[in-house]
């Protein structure tokens, strides 16, 4: 497998890798580093890649594991607490502003979910993978994935309703 073949296989899902990394590591810089690191790893194991049927799922699994390692390592533990990507919620009467805030709220709500639910909602609702692929990526049974996904969706919805009712009254 030469370089151009390799890039043809791996480049289409670089954004997905990046977004998953960002979901888990929060900071954009960390996610960029993680993406770059992951591609080093993929390139190093390029001989094996030729044998894989689903390179994308393999890469997503690697991303997930790599991000877990990063989160565990002391080095990253400081960085995960930096939330620099969204502004403080502003009180504005503008309906559009409020709408934007609520969309941002979803981001914060996902942030608070357990890691596993975070990954699954990222893979399903944002990247739109089918269940079979998600099961492979996170190494879980389909029913477990469904339960986690359902739980995550319900939590987000309930939190949104709660926040909204507070806002109105």
């Amino acid at each position: 497998m030469n370089q151009s073949d390799f890039l043809k296989v791996v480049l289409p899902f670089k954004d997905k890798v990046f977004r998953l990394a960002k979901r888990l590591l929060v900071s954009t810089e960390e996610a960029e580093d993680a993406t770059q690191e992951l591609y080093f790893k993929l390139w190093r194991s390029k001989e094996k890649i030729a044998d894989y049927k689903n390179v994308e799922a393999f890469a997503m699994t690697m991303t997930k594991n790599y991000c877990y390692d990063r989160l565990k390592s002391k080095q990253a533990s400081n960085l995960t607490l930096v939330h620099s990507n969204y502004k403080e919620k502003e009180t504005s009467l503008d309906k559009k502003m409020e709408h934007r805030d609520s969309v941002n709220q979803v981001h914060q709500l996902i942030e608070k979910l357990p890691e596993q639910q975070k990954i699954i909602i990222q893979l399903r609702d944002i990247e739109q993978y089918d269940f079979e692929e998600i099961c492979k990526m996170v190494d879980m049974k389909p029913t477990a994935v469904r339960v986690a996904l359902s739980r995550a969706r319900k939590t987000i919805r309930e939190e949104l309703i709660k926040k909204h009712n507070y806002g109105v009254s």
Partner: peptide, 14 residues
């Protein structure tokens, strides 16, 4: 809100 967020997030690229 949820779906708008999902769609918006997918636009982010490396």
């Amino acid at each position: 809100y949820m779906f708008n967020y999902f769609v918006a997030t997918k636009d982010e690229t490396y």
